[in-house]
Each structure stands twice: as structure tokens, then as C-alpha cells.
Amino acid sequence: MSTTPSTGTLSGSVISYAIWADDGRRLAEFYAAALGSEVGEPYPDEHGNEVAFPVTVGNAMYVFWTSSSFTAPAWPQQELPFHMDLAFPDVAAAEKRLLELGANKPDFQPGGEHWTVLLDPSGQPLCISQAQPS
């Protein structure tokens, strides 16, 4: 018996992005501050421990999960499965504030004048750049 694949078009939508870290709450607080948002009500695991911390920005929700087995990528030696690009009207001021919030600036900066790479508090790279005029 053979089956024929459906020819219908899917029309799903992304409702959240999940990001693992050694301390999900700390990472949620970092990105909430960076994006002008707040950390929402945390989600518990099966034992009642708070392990997932949502941050809503516009129509997107980012959920920062605490993972005891999390290891930050060895960037730039390892390829990244994902990273965030954040845009700001004043990149210099944003960089300064993100560093105050716990980010680090690695020596390797492949973006030249186009973007700056920072490492968030969990050690994962993120890029910041100039916001484009709307």
C-alpha cells in the first residue's frame, strides 16, 4: 500500500522561541532589559521548580530555560545553531548598557562596521547593529 503526500500548504506561525542557558532567569532578565520588556510568570517543571522564564516583545515570546547540562558554544571555533541579532537606534549606548547588564565583548569581531558581537550572560553570541529607519 502506498501513500500519497498531502499537497496542502501549511500555514503555521511561530509562537515562541526557546533558548537554553545555565540560568534561565538571569538570561531572561538580561534580554528583558535589553529589549524594554519584563520577565513574565515562570513555568515550573514537573517538581514545581521554576525553570522557564518568558519574555514577550511585540508578538514574539522568548522562553529562557534553565538547563543543568547547558554548555555555552565555543565561538568562533564552533558553528552556532542560532543567535540573536538586535538593532538599536544608538549602538554605542546599547553596547555600553548590555555590558553593564552582564554581556562581554569578545576580541573576535567579524562584522567590521556593520555589527558588533557580544556574548550574553550565558556565553552565547548575539549581534547588535544600527536600527534601520522605518
Rank of each mutant, 00 (worst) to 15 (best):
P73D: 08
A33F: 04
R26Y: 03
L101G: 05
F88L: 03
T7A: 15
G111R: 02
S37M: 07
L80K: 04
A33Y: 04
L86M: 14
Q124M: 10
D85F: 00
G102S: 06
P121I: 08
I19F: 04
A32T: 08
P110F: 01
V39I: 10
S134M: 05
R26H: 07
S68I: 07
K96R: 14
L27G: 03
Q124S: 13
H114S: 11
S68D: 15
I19Y: 03
D45V: 06
A21G: 15
D23E: 15
P76Q: 05
G112R: 04
A74R: 15
T71V: 11
Q130F: 02
S11D: 14
I15Q: 15
S68L: 08
C127P: 04
S2Q: 12
L80Q: 12
T4K: 12
G111M: 03
A52I: 06
C127K: 00
H47L: 09
E113I: 05
Q78C: 03
F88A: 09
L35E: 08
P125G: 02
G12A: 14
S37T: 10
D107S: 14
P106L: 01
T116Q: 05
A28M: 08
P5V: 00
L126W: 02
W115Y: 15
H83S: 12
T116E: 02
V57W: 02
E95F: 00
H83R: 12
A103R: 05
E79K: 10
V117C: 09
A92V: 13
A87I: 01
L119W: 07
S67M: 11
R26D: 03
L118E: 10
C127F: 00
T7R: 11
A74P: 00
S134F: 05
S13Y: 05
H114M: 12
N59K: 05
A93V: 09
M84K: 00
P133C: 03
P76H: 07
Y43W: 13
V14K: 03
M1W: 05
M61S: 15
Y62V: 04
P54D: 06
A94C: 04
A93E: 15
N104F: 01
H83A: 12
A60S: 15
E113Y: 03
A94P: 01
T66G: 06
V51F: 08
D120W: 08
Y31H: 08
S129N: 10
P133F: 09
S11H: 14
T4I: 12
D45R: 03
F70A: 02
E95M: 08
G48M: 08
T66E: 09
E38L: 06
P42M: 00
R26Q: 14
W20T: 14
E29A: 12
S2A: 14
L99Q: 06
M84Y: 09
S122H: 04
P44S: 13
M61D: 06
S13T: 13
A87F: 10
T4L: 14
